[in-house]
């Protein structure tokens, strides 16, 4: 026998299931009376510094069907690249948003500010991005990905640079539809499968 390691194992994940909205977005399913204030209603408050943007999109399954039951969380820094809680961070930016695919159309909308750039652990500047975490029925462990922007210089981003098949980089880049409005579709499978992250 060898010595025992002082390390625990993470609790295994399970799917969020079809009724995830009850727990995380009660007002989505008409149960809004239960809490005085819900979590992640908006990542910004009135007066947040930076450019207001809207990102719309859908989460598609392997058949090309837009999920009607996906729930997404986004996490991002303020316009200068500082996360909530860090020194000097914009107090009007909580950084967290919870949003759901529309039950009829499957489309989601994230209204936020354009995030600032942040360096990675090695000190390399990353292109501005928003982190996403996607859960739903049929997703057994939450999927992580990032939204980058087609009107930023993404050429030196260290994460995008690690994607071997360069056309797949496009799956992480939100496309401008109108000033301040982007489209970002997430594909769980198939051609143009989104690059999902393990970090």
């Amino acid at each position: 026998m060898v010595q025992k390691l002082d390390i625990l194992q993470e609790t295994p994940s399970q799917t969020a299931g079809p009724y995830v909205h009850i727990g995380l977005m009660p007002s989505y399913t008409g149960n809004g009376q239960i809490f005085a204030q819900e979590v992640g209603v908006s990542p910004i408050e009135e007066g947040a510094e930076g450019e207001i943007i809207e990102i719309v999109g859908s989460v598609f399954d392997g058949t090309g069907w837009a999920l009607r039951d996906a729930l997404i969380e986004s996490w991002q820094p303020d316009a200068k690249g500082r996360f909530a809680g860090q020194e000097g961070a914009d107090p009007k930016v909580s950084g967290l948003c919870r949003f759901a695919a529309d039950a009829t159309s499957g489309e989601f909308t994230l209204r936020t500010i354009k995030p600032g750039a942040v360096r990675n652990r090695a000190g390399v500047m990353q292109a501005p991005h928003i982190s996403l975490w996607i859960v739903s029925r049929g997703i057994n462990i939450g999927l992580s990905t990032r939204i980058y922007f087609d009107d930023e210089d993404n050429s030196a981003d260290p994460l995008l640079g690690r994607i071997e098949q360069s056309p797949r980089v496009e799956t992480l880049i939100a496309k401008t539809e109108a000033p301040g409005r982007y489209r970002f579709n997430i594909r769980l499978q198939g051609t143009d499968e989104t690059v999902f992250l393990d970090l």
């Binding site: 392997g62 652990r121 049929g138 057994n140 994607i163 769980l188 499968e193 690059v195 393990d198 970090l199």
Partner: peptide
């Protein structure tokens, strides 16, 4: 339901940074 909702391709593994 997991059949059409699970990625087929490997995840991209990297060291975490401030975003995570």
């Amino acid at each position: 339901t997991s059949v059409t909702r699970s990625p087929n391709l490997p995840l991209l593994s990297l060291e975490s940074g401030p975003s995570e």
